[in-house]
Structures are given as C-alpha cells and as structure tokens.
Amino acid sequence: MAQAAESHPHAAPSLLSKSHFTISTRQSALALAQTTLIATALSSCFPGTTFAPLPMETIADKDQKTALYAFNAKSLWTFELEDQLLSGKSDLIAHSLKDMPTQLPEGCILGAACMRDEKRDAVVMSLASVEKGWKTLRDLPDGSVVGTSSTRRIAQLKRLYPALKIADMRGNINTRLRKLDSDVDEDGTPKFAALILAATGLKRVGLGDRVSACLSWEDGGWLGAVGQGALGVEVREGDIDVERLCQLLMQSTHEGNKVWLEVLTERMLLRTLEGGCSVPIGVESNWVEDQLDVRAVCMSVDGQREVRTHQRKMINGKEEAEAFGLALAQEMVENGAGEILKEITLNRKIIADGGGA
C-alpha cells in the first residue's frame, strides 16, 4: 500500500492563509481510510495545519440494491460532495480516482492524483471456493456465479470467461464479502463462487488476504478502470491555498509526478470517448523507463465486440499527457470504438450535459 511521506523538505505552513482544512469524503471504511492517507500526507507537508474529514453518505451509498449501470445520475459518487465543496463547507474532496468523472462541475478541478501502486482488479473467492482450492477464474467450474456491478468487468467476463455466470453485487467491501460468503440459493448451495473488486481497496482496509488472484493484461488480457488504484483530490478552481496543498502532496508521495501523468492520459482518453462508469472501457498504464506504455479497450456490453489500442510515448507534462490520451482515443474511434459507443445509451445524455471537465 502506498505510504504517506513522513516529512517533506519543502514543508512551508507559512504559505497558507489558514491552519484548518476540511476534506469531503464518502463515509465508507475505504473512503475514510483513503482520506486518512491524504490527510496524513498533507499534515507531513504542513506541520501545525489540521486536515479533518467531513464524511457523508452519497446517493449511491444509500441505494445498495440498484445495479450501478441502472443509475441515471451524473457523477454518481461525487455530486453531493461537490455541492459541499462549491458551497464552501469543505476545502477539498478525497476520491477513489476511478469513481471520479472526467467532466466536473464548473468551478471544480482535479488538483492532485497520487498513491497509486496497485492498478489491478482482484478475484476474491468465497470461503467455500477457497476450501475447494479454487484461486483463479480459470479454476471455477462452468456455471459458477461471479459477483460484480461494473459494466467493464461484466463485458470482460463475458468475453474472456463465457462459461461463467454473472450476478449483480452491490455494497461496501464488507457487505460484498458477507454476501459472497453467506448468500445461498433455495437449495442451500452458495450463491456466489467469487467476486471481483479493486485490489487496492481491499489492501487499504486491511483485507488484502482475501485477494485470491489479480487480473491483468499479462494474465488473460484483462484491463482495469481509468484511474484505478490512485487517489484524487478535487478542489475549487482558483483556491490558491489548496492548489499549494496539492502541489506538495504530489511531490511528497511516491512517484507522484508519474501518477499524475498516467491519470491525465487515461482521463483524457476516457473523456474523449465520452465513457462514464457505465461504459466498458478498460486501461492499463505502466512506465517503461521514461516512456508511458498504455493499453486500452472499448467493449460492447455483451463482450462480443472490442477495439483495443497499445501505444508508448515519452511524456513530460500535462499538455503532452492529455495529447497522448486524445491520440489513443482517436485511434480507437477510427478503429470502431465510436460505433460501439453509439449503441450504448446508458449515461449518453448525462455525459453530453456534463459541462466542463
């Protein structure tokens, strides 16, 4: 798990006009753990300054029954937090970056991205599956049920593991694990054999031991979500104090600038393709020496069609990262991704109405 720096040579509390900042966040255990990571890193950069979480329950947290792809709401996890930010009730928002839309409300910007050291999805086997020695999706018998509510994961499961069945799985991490291990069919047999979660989330709440296997391009052609594993900080545009916080936060965390460039590239790709969390778009970015190597896929919801791209480029700043993301997306559109996305109506009008990024 990424660790906050213990101290920073450029710590300068005198640069700030106040000594107390509030951080809007969802109130789940994972969100609070991630907010604590950001607050701890900021505190090390600005000794004597306090950073207090301001947790709240979002609409997606309150409704644990509706499948994610069935929601008809822009910024599913974020818009209520953004209301707090824009009204001045908080100073910044801590996000799982994969849940942060690429189109932000007017007056909000992405100020920082950091602490990304595990980008992969994880296979979590039920306790019953573990007893049978099953570790990977390949181990599961035909007809086994895998839980997820992500269209990206559903599409890849349908394409790469067509013999498996898929069932909707919502809730926070502990709720999903309880369903995985306890839900049974009418005949008493376990309902789920496995579920898929972000590996980083499990590790950040101390449940890394539940990871049975990780899914990646190298092992089966699987791609994660845009921004997966990274923490994002959303801020009010023009807030000089918080912009300074963000700059030092990225400098003080491991590989901060590289994470920033990865995220900018991936988010521009997603934004150009107009894909929200309900569109099957996957990506995997890695640094090969000083070049950013990116693989991406756009899939039909049923997993039957896909368009992939793979490019590597030297990236030295924000403009170059966003230009790279744009070029990746344009190549995918030219190769048929545009036609796939035209057929996906989920969130299309919402995205079109989204305003500035």
Rank of each mutant, 00 (worst) to 15 (best):
F71Y: 14
I109W: 01
N286D: 11
I38K: 01
A225G: 03
P47T: 07
T66V: 04
L104S: 05
L180K: 10
V259R: 09
F21Q: 07
D290H: 04
L231C: 10
G208C: 09
S19F: 00
Q247W: 02
Q156A: 02
R120D: 13
K135H: 12
E80A: 05
T78A: 10
G338E: 06
G338V: 10
F79S: 14
D187M: 09
G317C: 12
L292D: 10
R348W: 03
K135Y: 04
Q27K: 12
A94F: 10
S43F: 00
L177F: 06
L164C: 05
L85V: 01
K62T: 09
H20S: 15
A122N: 10
A29K: 12
A29N: 09
K65L: 13
L273H: 08
L326M: 13
Q251M: 10
G208L: 08
T265H: 01
D91L: 06
L326Q: 14
E319M: 11
G171Y: 11
T36P: 00
I109A: 13
D121I: 00
T253I: 07
S75V: 03
P105Q: 15
E106C: 00
I315Y: 09
R153L: 12
L140E: 08
G220T: 11
A29D: 14
L269F: 04
C114S: 08
I59K: 13
M250I: 13
T78C: 06
E255F: 02
V205Q: 01
C108T: 14
A199K: 06
L231Y: 08
T309E: 10
G238T: 09
L197C: 10
L264E: 07
L346G: 06
G232M: 03
A199T: 05
F21P: 07
A122M: 06
G48C: 03
V333I: 15
G224W: 01
T36V: 03
R312I: 15
L346C: 07
R120T: 12
Q84E: 10
E82A: 11
S126W: 02
K98L: 11
P190N: 07
P190C: 07
A70F: 13
F51K: 08
L160I: 13
G206Q: 08
P47F: 04
K89H: 11
E243D: 09
F46E: 11
V301M: 07
L197K: 06
L76W: 04
F51C: 10
E274I: 00
E322S: 11
L249V: 07
M125T: 07
Q84M: 13
T265F: 00
L269Y: 03
A94T: 12
E234D: 10
L110Y: 00
R153A: 11
L137H: 08
T36H: 13
A198I: 10
T345Q: 14
D139P: 03
L32N: 01
M314T: 14
P280A: 02
S216P: 01
A11I: 01
R116F: 00
T345H: 14
D209L: 09
T58P: 07
